[in-house]
Design a protein around this nucleic acid. Structure first.
Lengths: 120, 120
DNA sequence: GGTATACATTTGAATATTGCAATATATAAC
DNA sequence: GTTATATATTGCAATATTCAAATGTATACC
């Protein structure tokens, strides 16, 4: 049998989708999205609410904006961010439901991460 | 002796959720999940269908299994994988609408850059 | 016993991402 | 112009992830 070519056969669609999920695979970015559920907020508001350094917040805001999750509005020296498509929250909530079911099934992973003493 | 990290305020929930999304942030893993929409398949079936090397497929299957997305069933020398929770497909499909809108935004930005508009 | 098949794991180098500090930019008020 | 405030960007070491080859394990068949 012929050997399958190495990773070349992957559809570009799966590559783009992976980028989409990777953008959500960061705790600060998820925290920012959650903070913006209530409506648009300035960078400074986010910095205070999330108790993070300003450059860290700006950095992750930039990622979310470049990916199209967020839009920015400038007012004076402040920049207000809002979610481009609120559907993303239904998406995140559905993800959370699945995620919580996985934690129930995977209680060993949970306890390992919480207590740092895995079972042999 | 170590300085406390500046990101200590992040909730553990956001950290766990980020891991959840990171597991989906890989083209091969997405391709595997899509291939298993039709039902359980052996590793060999997946290798042939996706045209990837066997170790690559096994490696990503392992990630999806450890995260709780997949379950394995052994039969002879074959191992059949299936999705633990089919709700994940509703989740992936919901993500597609958001993702496609962002893809359009991306391509708009790309063509804007390609058509020779000088930088501001 | 040996051989073949199916799958998993380990290894290591290339690559990507992160966290944090320093620096840059833009606007407002003076 | 200067100063202050708000935000963005850059630079880089540390860390994490990926890719693919090599190796390991388990089962079936002879």
């Amino acid at each position: 049998m012929r050997k399958p070519p190495a990773q070349r056969a992957l559809s570009p669609l799966h590559r783009f989708k992976a980028e989409f999920f990777k953008a959500l695979g960061h705790p600060v970015r998820l925290a920012i999205l959650d903070a913006l559920r209530e409506g648009e907020k300035s960078v400074n508001q986010l910095v205070e609410e999330l108790e993070l350094e300003q450059p860290s917040v700006s950095q992750q805001l930039s990622v979310l904006r470049q990916r199209g999750f967020l839009q920015a509005r400038k007012e004076g020296t402040s920049v207000y961010y809002r979610t481009t498509d609120p559907t993303v929250y239904a998406f995140l909530d559905l993800g959370r439901a699945i995620f919580e079911r996985q934690l129930k099934t995977q209680s060993d992973l949970l306890s390992e991460l919480q207590e740092g003493s895995p079972q042999p």
